[in-house]
Write a protein that binds this DNA or RNA. Structure first.
Lengths: 341, 341
DNA sequence: GTGAAAGCGCTAACAT
DNA sequence: ATGTTAGCGCTTTCAC
C-alpha cells in the first residue's frame, strides 16, 4: 500500500535505458530494438507502473478525443443514445471521453474544462439547458453539438453550433391529435415544470396547439404540474388530479416514466386504463413495452439521434460542412393504453 | 472558433502581474490585494480563460479526491447508490471523481489510471468483477472498496480490500423460502448466466439451498438462463419456459428488471400473476412499485450501501481502521405479485 | 536505435 | 502583497 508511485524515470533506470526509449515502447513506436522493447515491457509489468495521464495530456498538443458531457445521472432514455455515440466515434477512429454530471451542474463549464484538460477535438452535450447565450459559450472553442435538445429558449446564432433533436412541440401535437382522433375531448395533461424553458414547456405548447386546432377550449383544471420528471411526483400529481374531481377521458403525459407512474395512480384510484382513461406519452423507453397495459408512446429514435450527432460533429471537425441542425422524426408505437371513446 | 487557448501566462501579461499572482487569485488565496484580484478576475472573464486541469493535477502532490468507477452504463440500480456516495463524500469534505465504463472494460486498470491522473486518496468500485487476484491489483496503491459486490470468486486477501454488499445467496434463499412458505413447491428460476462467477451464480445457489432445505428436489427443467440482465432476453426466456410445457406455480427471478419482463411474458401467454403464477425477485427498484401487479422483491438498501462504502473508505484513508467487509440486510417489500397457493 | 534536453501549464516554495 | 523559479511526468525534436 505505502508503495511510492513509479514514474517513467524509474522504469528507465530499472532498464538502464533513457526515458525516451521507455516512452517509445509505451507508445508503440517502431524504432526500438525488440530486445529493449521486451525488457521495458517486462519491467513495466513487474513494477506495476502506470503512466500518468495528466502528464501525457499536458504535453500533447492535440488528440483524437471527442468529449461527451451527459447531464442527469442514469436517465434510462440516454443509454441507447450513448451506445450509438460510442459505436460511431469508435468506428471513425476517434476516442470518446464521457463525463456524467448532476442535473444541477453546468455542462458548459464542464465541457470547457474537459476541452483544455483532454485537448478535445469536439464536444457532444447530451441533455442540457435550452437557453445558452453566446457569451457563456465563449469558453468552448471546439465544435459542439446539442444532442437530443436544441437551443429553443436561448439567443445563440444558429450558425455557431449544431443540434439533433425531435420537434417536441409537433410530437406532442400529434400525440394529442391521436387522442382527439379517437374521440377524446376532455384530455388532461401532466407536465414537469422544472422551469419554464424546458422540454416540458415545448410539449405543453404542442398539447395546447392540438386542442386549439380541434376547437377544444383548454381547461386549466386538467393541467397538472410536478416539480421533476420523477415517478413519485408523477404518481402524486395524478392522484391530485383525480381527487380534484376534474373530468377527463384521456391523459397526455410528457414522458414515459411519468406515464407509467400515472397509470398506477389511476389504477389505485379505481380507474382502468384504457377503459376509463386513455394514456399517451412521449419517449419510447423499452420499459414501456413491458408494463401492462403497454404504453402507447411517440418513440424518439435514440440510435439515430446518437449517430446523427456524431456524423455532424465529425463533418464540422474535418471541415466537410458547417454547423447543422437536424430534427428527427418520432414514430407512434401503439400500445394498449389508448382506446377509442 | 480558431481562437488560441490562453494560458495563465497570458492572463498574467494581460494584467501586468506575475503568474503566481494569477494563480493565487484562481485558487482563492487570501494574500492578494483586492484591486489586483478584481482585475485578474475581470481579465479571466473577458478572455474566457479556463485553467488546464491536467497541469493542475500534475503539479499537485496529492488531492482530496475519491475516485468512483461505475461499471455498466446507466444501471437503474446504481443511481441511488451514487447519490448516497456523492452526498457522503461531499459532507466529509472530499471531492468525488466519477468515471463510467462499459461492461466490457476493466475497472481495475481504469482505477489505476485515474489514481495516477487525479492523485486519488481512495477508490470505490461500483459493480465490478468478482474474481480479482492480488496480482492484477498491484497497480492500485490506494485503499479501495468494492461497492455492492465482493470478491466471492477471487483469491484476494480479505485484509487488503474492503467491501459492502448484501449476502446474495441468503437473500435468494429467503426469497425462495417466502414462496415455499406460501405453499409453492414447483418454483421456476430465471438466471442471467453471463459467466459462472457472477451475482447470478450466487443467487442461484440460494435458490438451490432453499429447495434443498425444504426437501424439494431441484428440477432442471424449471431453470432458465439468459445471456444478460436485459428485459428483452428475460422476456424471451420466460416464453421459452412456458412453451417447454414445464409446470410451475411460482418464479424466482434474480433481478427486478428481468421480473418485470417475465410478468409481461407470462401475461402474454395467458397466465395471470399472481393467480396462475407468483413472482418474486431481488433488487427493489423504485420502478417495481409502479408496475402492475407491484413486484414483490427483496430490496437492497441502496443508500446504506453507498453510505457504508464511503464510511469504510474514509476510515481506512484517515487511519481510523483497517479494511472491513460489511454485509447489509435486504428487506422484503411485499407487492402484489405473490399469492399463497 | 538511442539519448539529451526543452517545454506542456500550472503550483508552491522562496525571495523580495 | 507580489515576483522568480524549480519542478510535476511525460512526449518530442534534435543529435549522435
Amino acid at each position: 500500500m505505502g508503495v511510492e508511485r513509479l514514474t517513467i524515470k524509474d522504469i528507465a533506470r530499472l532498464c538502464g535505458v533513457s526515458v525516451s526509449t521507455v516512452s517509445r515502447v509505451l507508445n508503440d513506436r517502431p524504432d526500438v530494438s525488440p530486445a529493449v522493447r521486451e525488457q521495458v515491457l517486462e519491467a513495466v509489468r513487474e513494477s506495476n507502473y502506470v503512466p500518468n495521464n495528466s502528464a501525457r495530456y499536458l504535453v500533447k498538443a492535440n488528440s483524437d478525443a471527442i468529449g461527451l458531457v451527459v447531464r442527469g445521472v442514469s436517465n434510462p432514455f440516454y443509454s441507447d443514445v450513448i451506445k450509438a455515440i460510442n459505436r460511431e466515434i469508435d468506428a471513425a477512429g476517434y476516442t470518446l471521453m464521457m463525463q456524467q454530471i448532476g442535473s444541477s451542474e453546468d455542462e458548459i463549464s464542464r465541457g470547457a474544462i474537459m476541452e483544455r484538460e483532454k485537448k478535445l477535438r469536439g464536444l457532444i452535450f447530451l441533455g442540457g439547458r435550452w437557453d445558452y447565450s453566446a457569451e457563456e459559450l465563449g469558453t468552448i472553442t471546439v465544435p459542439f453539438v446539442c444532442c437530443s435538445y436544441t437551443n429553443s429558449f436561448g439567443s445563440l446564432d444558429r450558425g455557431s453550433f449544431s443540434s439533433v433533436s425531435i420537434e417536441d412541440e409537433s410530437a406532442a401535437r400529434s400525440a394529442v391529435n391521436e387522442l382527439i382522433r379517437l374521440g377524446h375531448r376532455r384530455i388532461a395533461c401532466l407536465l414537469a415544470e422544472t422551469d419554464d424553458r424546458s422540454i416540458s414547456e415545448l410539449r405543453y405548447r404542442g398539447y395546447l396547439a392540438a386542442l386549439r386546432e380541434a376547437g377544444i377550449e383548454p381547461d386549466m383544471s386538467l393541467v397538472e404540474r410536478t416539480g421533476s420528471f420523477g415517478m413519485d411526483e408523477a404518481y402524486a400529481a395524478t392522484k391530485r388530479l383525480v381527487a380534484s374531481g376534474a373530468e377527463f377521458t384521456a391523459m397526455f403525459i410528457i414522458a414515459d416514466a411519468m406515464a407509467i407512474a400515472a397509470i398506477k395512480a389511476l389504477a389505485d384510484c379505481g380507474r382502468d386504463v384504457p377503459r376509463d382513461c386513455s394514456v399517451i406519452a412521449i419517449d419510447g423507453l423499452s420499459m414501456s413495452e413491458y408494463v401492462r397495459p403497454t404504453l402507447t408512446t411517440l418513440c424518439q429514435p435514440m440510435s439515430q439521434i446518437g449517430e446523427e450527432s456524431v456524423r455532424i460533429l465529425l463533418d464540422v471537425i474535418e471541415g466537410r460542412s458547417g454547423c447543422r441542425h437536424v430534427t428527427v422524426e418520432t414514430a407512434l408505437r401503439p400500445g394498449a393504453s389508448v382506446a377509442a371513446l
